[in-house]
Design a binder for these strands. Sequence first.
DNA 1: GAGGGGATTCCCCTGTCGGA
DNA 2: TCCGACAGGGGAATCCCCTC
Length: 342
Amino acid sequence: MGRPPLGGGPVFRFTPSEVMEMEACLQVSNNVIPDRGLISSLAEKFSASAERSGKVVVQPKQVWNWFQNRRYAQRAKVVKAPGKLNVTPAARDEPIQIRNVASPAPSAQAKNSLDGNQMEFEAKSARDGAWYDVAQFISHRMFETGDPEVLVRFSGFGIEEDEWVNVRKCVRQRSLPCEASECVVVLPGDLILCFQEGKEQALYFDAHVLDAQRRRHDARGCRCRFLVRYDHDQSEEIVPLRKVCRRPETEYRLRILQATKAHQASSPEAAAAAASQAQPQKLQRPTEADSAEATAPRDAAAAEEAGGPPAAAGDSNAEPVPDVEHLGGSGEIPPAAKTVAE
DNA sequence: GAGGGGATTCCCCTGTCGGA
DNA sequence: TCCGACAGGGGAATCCCCTC
């Protein structure tokens, strides 16, 4: 694809001084192509220089091409250099590759989880099979089968709604509402907590993601759609992100994603910092005005808990079980957000 | 008015071509 | 072989139209 030189004259070449200046720009901007304004001013400056003596006009497009080519050449060089990195130019594609990657060291995750933050739990009610936030563990008992049970007070409900639930099967770490930027960590096959709206009630049920339709985000936030199948009735529904709460086990994906973005933005150091500082913002369950659900801000502390290894994802029984002995005494969870049915 | 869906535009990345 | 130019593809942002 040979291109005739612009203007039809001799082949265009940047002078050494021009190359030096553009390289300096590239370095200053951390290998990011300068904006249009700077490119135009560079082109004008080069055109007016003594070396060009006004005879050759340097087009902004040519300057831009130079930046493109130089950056690509530099990255190609880095990739070929052995043992130099794991920072490849394909960084922007990595979110897709998050799938099936190994999780970060468990120790790093566990460190954050108990770092002065109180863990929050949710429990499955035997009455309707839906999951509710746990406000308090009232008591506990042990069955002959060896399965411990706890008496839980659901957040937003009174004593009359207290329920004995199986710790292994019906208590787990609280699911996390998704922010718009977190839709990428919701993948087909994932176990999620999904807000199902019925005619008379709207509750959170376990569901599995069958398919994820990615859409462009805009000022309104995430517009992706997720085809989910509810575990309790096998019904399928296409839901927006706001109805999806991801399991804490997917936290590692978010951290990988953040680390990847940091790689793109600057350096491996920044990436490491981002990975270690992944601090979820204050989250809320999706608010559904039409349904009679009461939603309050959830404590970000619970969101701090990183999920376990990928193997645990999708297996609610494999999740950490609260120490009921301990929680029985001080298991008070700050007024959390409870999703109140009907 | 809010939200959903699609079209358009811009930018970036990757790869290739031809001249020097 | 190096360097500049550009094609093709994909992602992101924005805008417009439609429906409820």
